[in-house]
Simulated assay, not measured.
Amino acid sequence: MGSTADEIAFYTHPQSRGRIVRWMLEETGQPYRTEVLGYGESMKSPAYLAINPMGKVPAIVHRGVAVTEAAAICSYLADAFPQAGLAPALDDPLRGSYFRWLFFAAGPVEAAASAKAFGLLAPPEKAGMVGYGSFEQMVDTLEQAVAGAAPWLLGERFSAADVYLGSQVLWGMMFRTLPERPAFAEYGARLRARPAWQRASALDDALIAQQ
Protein backbone atom coordinates (compact mmCIF):
# COMPACT_ATOMS: atom_id res chain seq x y z
CA MET A 1 0.00 0.00 0.00
CA GLY A 2 2.99 2.30 -0.33
CA SER A 3 3.37 5.17 -2.76
CA THR A 4 6.16 7.01 -4.50
CA ALA A 5 7.45 10.17 -2.87
CA ASP A 6 5.33 12.69 -4.77
CA GLU A 7 2.31 10.51 -5.48
CA ILE A 8 -0.94 10.99 -3.60
CA ALA A 9 -2.32 7.62 -2.54
CA PHE A 10 -6.02 7.94 -1.75
CA TYR A 11 -7.72 5.29 0.40
CA THR A 12 -11.47 5.33 0.19
CA HIS A 13 -14.80 3.62 -0.30
CA PRO A 14 -17.35 5.19 -2.65
CA GLN A 15 -20.03 5.13 0.06
CA SER A 16 -18.06 6.97 2.69
CA ARG A 17 -16.70 10.38 3.63
CA GLY A 18 -14.05 9.57 1.06
CA ARG A 19 -16.37 11.29 -1.41
CA ILE A 20 -15.42 14.59 0.25
CA VAL A 21 -11.72 13.94 -0.29
CA ARG A 22 -12.29 12.74 -3.86
CA TRP A 23 -13.96 16.09 -4.59
CA MET A 24 -11.09 17.95 -2.95
CA LEU A 25 -8.54 16.00 -4.97
CA GLU A 26 -10.39 16.84 -8.17
CA GLU A 27 -10.39 20.52 -7.19
CA THR A 28 -6.61 20.49 -6.76
CA GLY A 29 -6.08 19.12 -10.26
CA GLN A 30 -3.29 16.86 -9.00
CA PRO A 31 -2.91 13.23 -10.09
CA TYR A 32 -3.64 10.62 -7.45
CA ARG A 33 -3.91 6.86 -7.10
CA THR A 34 -7.12 5.43 -5.68
CA GLU A 35 -7.13 2.40 -3.38
CA VAL A 36 -10.69 1.21 -2.74
CA LEU A 37 -11.07 -0.66 0.54
CA GLY A 38 -14.01 -2.78 1.58
CA TYR A 39 -15.72 -2.39 4.90
CA GLY A 40 -14.43 -5.03 7.24
CA GLU A 41 -11.38 -7.11 6.46
CA SER A 42 -9.45 -4.79 4.12
CA MET A 43 -10.02 -1.67 6.24
CA LYS A 44 -8.86 -3.64 9.29
CA SER A 45 -5.85 -5.24 7.61
CA PRO A 46 -2.44 -4.70 9.24
CA ALA A 47 -1.23 -2.83 6.14
CA TYR A 48 -4.05 -0.30 6.33
CA LEU A 49 -4.06 -0.04 10.12
CA ALA A 50 -0.45 1.11 9.78
CA ILE A 51 -1.85 4.09 7.82
CA ASN A 52 -4.96 4.69 9.92
CA PRO A 53 -5.18 2.81 13.22
CA MET A 54 -8.91 3.65 13.29
CA GLY A 55 -9.40 1.31 10.33
CA LYS A 56 -11.60 3.88 8.60
CA VAL A 57 -11.51 5.81 5.35
CA PRO A 58 -10.67 8.28 3.93
CA ALA A 59 -6.94 8.64 4.25
CA ILE A 60 -4.15 9.84 2.01
CA VAL A 61 -0.43 9.23 1.97
CA HIS A 62 1.68 11.97 0.41
CA ARG A 63 5.44 12.42 0.62
CA GLY A 64 5.58 9.59 3.13
CA VAL A 65 3.05 11.19 5.48
CA ALA A 66 -0.36 9.72 6.26
CA VAL A 67 -3.22 12.17 6.75
CA THR A 68 -6.60 11.04 8.04
CA GLU A 69 -9.89 12.83 8.85
CA ALA A 70 -11.63 14.46 5.91
CA ALA A 71 -11.36 18.04 7.17
CA ALA A 72 -7.65 17.61 7.89
CA ILE A 73 -7.08 16.11 4.45
CA CYS A 74 -8.88 19.01 2.76
CA SER A 75 -6.83 21.52 4.73
CA TYR A 76 -3.59 19.66 4.02
CA LEU A 77 -4.22 19.42 0.29
CA ALA A 78 -5.13 23.10 0.05
CA ASP A 79 -1.80 24.05 1.62
CA ALA A 80 0.23 21.38 -0.19
CA PHE A 81 -0.92 22.68 -3.58
CA PRO A 82 -1.28 26.46 -3.21
CA GLN A 83 -1.40 26.90 -6.99
CA ALA A 84 -4.96 25.53 -6.86
CA GLY A 85 -6.01 28.59 -4.84
CA LEU A 86 -8.09 26.57 -2.37
CA ALA A 87 -6.85 28.27 0.80
CA PRO A 88 -6.01 31.89 1.63
CA ALA A 89 -2.32 32.62 2.19
CA LEU A 90 -0.95 32.86 5.73
CA ASP A 91 -1.03 36.67 5.62
CA ASP A 92 -4.52 36.88 4.09
CA PRO A 93 -7.19 38.07 6.59
CA LEU A 94 -9.63 35.66 4.95
CA ARG A 95 -7.67 32.75 6.42
CA GLY A 96 -9.46 33.28 9.73
CA SER A 97 -12.90 32.90 8.13
CA TYR A 98 -11.60 29.96 6.11
CA PHE A 99 -10.61 28.02 9.22
CA ARG A 100 -13.72 29.15 11.07
CA TRP A 101 -16.12 27.56 8.61
CA LEU A 102 -13.96 24.55 7.82
CA PHE A 103 -13.85 23.53 11.45
CA PHE A 104 -17.38 24.65 12.26
CA ALA A 105 -18.40 21.98 9.75
CA ALA A 106 -15.98 19.42 11.19
CA GLY A 107 -17.12 20.12 14.75
CA PRO A 108 -20.63 21.41 15.48
CA VAL A 109 -22.22 20.48 12.14
CA GLU A 110 -20.87 16.93 12.01
CA ALA A 111 -21.54 16.27 15.69
CA ALA A 112 -25.05 17.72 15.77
CA ALA A 113 -26.18 16.05 12.54
CA SER A 114 -24.86 12.67 13.69
CA ALA A 115 -26.42 13.04 17.13
CA LYS A 116 -29.78 13.94 15.65
CA ALA A 117 -29.68 11.02 13.20
CA PHE A 118 -29.21 8.58 16.10
CA GLY A 119 -31.58 10.33 18.51
CA LEU A 120 -28.72 11.27 20.80
CA LEU A 121 -28.94 15.07 20.95
CA ALA A 122 -28.04 16.60 24.28
CA PRO A 123 -31.10 17.60 26.31
CA PRO A 124 -31.71 21.38 26.52
CA GLU A 125 -30.39 21.60 30.08
CA LYS A 126 -27.07 20.08 28.91
CA ALA A 127 -26.72 22.14 25.73
CA GLY A 128 -23.91 24.19 27.20
CA MET A 129 -21.81 21.06 27.62
CA VAL A 130 -21.65 20.12 23.93
CA GLY A 131 -19.80 21.96 21.20
CA TYR A 132 -22.84 22.40 18.99
CA GLY A 133 -25.04 23.86 21.72
CA SER A 134 -28.37 22.84 20.26
CA PHE A 135 -29.26 21.41 16.88
CA GLU A 136 -31.31 24.54 16.16
CA GLN A 137 -28.36 26.83 16.96
CA MET A 138 -26.14 24.83 14.63
CA VAL A 139 -28.66 24.92 11.78
CA ASP A 140 -29.30 28.65 12.15
CA THR A 141 -25.57 29.41 12.15
CA LEU A 142 -25.00 27.17 9.14
CA GLU A 143 -27.85 28.89 7.31
CA GLN A 144 -26.33 32.31 8.04
CA ALA A 145 -22.98 31.12 6.68
CA VAL A 146 -24.31 29.82 3.38
CA ALA A 147 -26.93 32.55 2.96
CA GLY A 148 -24.09 35.05 3.10
CA ALA A 149 -22.02 33.10 0.59
CA ALA A 150 -21.63 35.32 -2.44
CA PRO A 151 -21.28 32.86 -4.02
CA TRP A 152 -18.85 31.11 -1.67
CA LEU A 153 -17.98 31.26 2.01
CA LEU A 154 -15.06 33.59 1.24
CA GLY A 155 -16.98 35.68 -1.27
CA GLU A 156 -15.84 35.28 -4.85
CA ARG A 157 -13.18 32.79 -3.80
CA PHE A 158 -14.02 29.09 -3.65
CA SER A 159 -11.99 27.24 -1.03
CA ALA A 160 -11.52 23.94 0.76
CA ALA A 161 -13.97 25.25 3.34
CA ASP A 162 -16.68 25.11 0.66
CA VAL A 163 -15.69 21.53 -0.15
CA TYR A 164 -16.00 20.35 3.43
CA LEU A 165 -18.86 22.48 4.70
CA GLY A 166 -20.59 22.16 1.34
CA SER A 167 -20.41 18.37 1.59
CA GLN A 168 -22.16 18.55 4.95
CA VAL A 169 -24.91 20.66 3.39
CA LEU A 170 -25.32 18.35 0.40
CA TRP A 171 -25.47 15.26 2.58
CA GLY A 172 -27.79 16.96 5.05
CA MET A 173 -30.25 17.69 2.26
CA MET A 174 -29.91 14.22 0.75
CA PHE A 175 -30.38 12.31 4.01
CA ARG A 176 -32.75 14.89 5.52
CA THR A 177 -30.56 15.52 8.54
CA LEU A 178 -30.90 19.23 7.80
CA PRO A 179 -34.23 21.03 7.47
CA GLU A 180 -35.24 22.29 4.05
CA ARG A 181 -34.23 25.93 3.72
CA PRO A 182 -33.79 28.00 0.56
CA ALA A 183 -30.25 29.02 1.50
CA PHE A 184 -29.16 25.37 1.67
CA ALA A 185 -30.80 24.52 -1.66
CA GLU A 186 -29.26 27.52 -3.45
CA TYR A 187 -25.78 26.90 -2.07
CA GLY A 188 -26.08 23.20 -2.90
CA ALA A 189 -27.00 23.98 -6.49
CA ARG A 190 -23.87 26.12 -6.89
CA LEU A 191 -21.73 23.33 -5.45
CA ARG A 192 -23.19 20.66 -7.72
CA ALA A 193 -22.49 22.87 -10.74
CA ARG A 194 -18.75 22.72 -10.13
CA PRO A 195 -16.96 20.50 -12.67
CA ALA A 196 -14.74 18.97 -9.97
CA TRP A 197 -17.79 17.92 -7.93
CA GLN A 198 -19.33 16.39 -11.03
CA ARG A 199 -16.15 14.49 -11.91
CA ALA A 200 -15.72 13.20 -8.37
CA SER A 201 -19.34 12.11 -8.12
CA ALA A 202 -19.16 10.30 -11.45
CA LEU A 203 -16.03 8.43 -10.39
CA ASP A 204 -17.51 7.29 -7.10
CA ASP A 205 -20.89 6.46 -8.60
CA ALA A 206 -19.12 4.28 -11.17
CA LEU A 207 -17.36 2.41 -8.35
CA ILE A 208 -20.68 1.83 -6.61
CA ALA A 209 -22.13 0.44 -9.84
CA GLN A 210 -19.27 -2.08 -10.02
CA GLN A 211 -19.99 -3.51 -6.58
Score class of each variant (00 low, 15 high):
L170N: 01
Q144C: 10
G155K: 07
D205P: 12
R19V: 11
F118W: 05
P88S: 08
L25Q: 04
F81I: 01
G96N: 10
P46C: 07
Q168N: 14
K116L: 07
T4H: 14
Q198L: 07
G2P: 07
V169G: 01
P179R: 14
A59G: 08
A117Q: 06
S134R: 02
P46N: 10
Q168S: 15
A106C: 05
C74V: 15
A209L: 09
F158S: 06
D205S: 10
N52E: 07
W152T: 01
Q210I: 12
Y98Q: 07
I208C: 13
L90H: 13
E41T: 11
P182G: 00
D92G: 09
A202Q: 13
A66Q: 00
A89W: 05
D79N: 05
G133N: 12
A145N: 06
A5R: 13
Q210K: 14
A111E: 15
V21D: 12
L37F: 09
K126P: 07
E69H: 10
R22P: 05
L102T: 02
T34W: 00
G55C: 08
L178P: 03
A150H: 15
R176D: 10
L178R: 01
A72E: 04
V163W: 12
L77Q: 03
A105N: 06
F158P: 08
P195Y: 02
P58R: 02
H13R: 06
R95H: 11
G64L: 04
P108T: 00
I8C: 01
R19K: 13
G85P: 09
P46L: 06
Y11Q: 01
E136W: 10
G119N: 03
A183M: 03
P93E: 03
A150N: 14
D162F: 00
A117H: 07
M173T: 08
L170A: 01
F184N: 03
G64P: 00
L102M: 13
V21H: 04
F103K: 05
S201Q: 12
P151V: 02
D92P: 15
W171A: 11
A189H: 03
L86S: 02
S42H: 10
L153H: 13
S167C: 14
R192K: 14
G148R: 08
A202R: 10
V163I: 15
I8W: 06
E125C: 05
P14Y: 07
F81E: 03
T34Q: 06
R100S: 15
T12N: 09
Y164W: 14
A72Q: 06
W197S: 01
P82S: 04
G2M: 11
A113E: 12
S201I: 03
G38D: 14
G131R: 13
G55E: 08
A59Y: 04
P182W: 10
Q168W: 14
G148M: 02
A206K: 12
S114N: 15
D91R: 13
S201K: 10
L153W: 12
R22F: 04
H62E: 00
S167W: 11
G55L: 09
A115G: 02
E41D: 12
P88D: 03
S159L: 01
T141I: 10
A78N: 04
Q198H: 04
L203Y: 08
L178F: 07
D6Y: 01
Q210N: 09
L207V: 15
N52D: 00
N52C: 02
G128R: 10
L86M: 06
S167H: 15
E180C: 06
F10S: 02
W101P: 04
S97G: 14
A84E: 07
R17D: 09
M43T: 15
D6C: 00
A105M: 05
D6H: 08
L154I: 07
A122R: 04
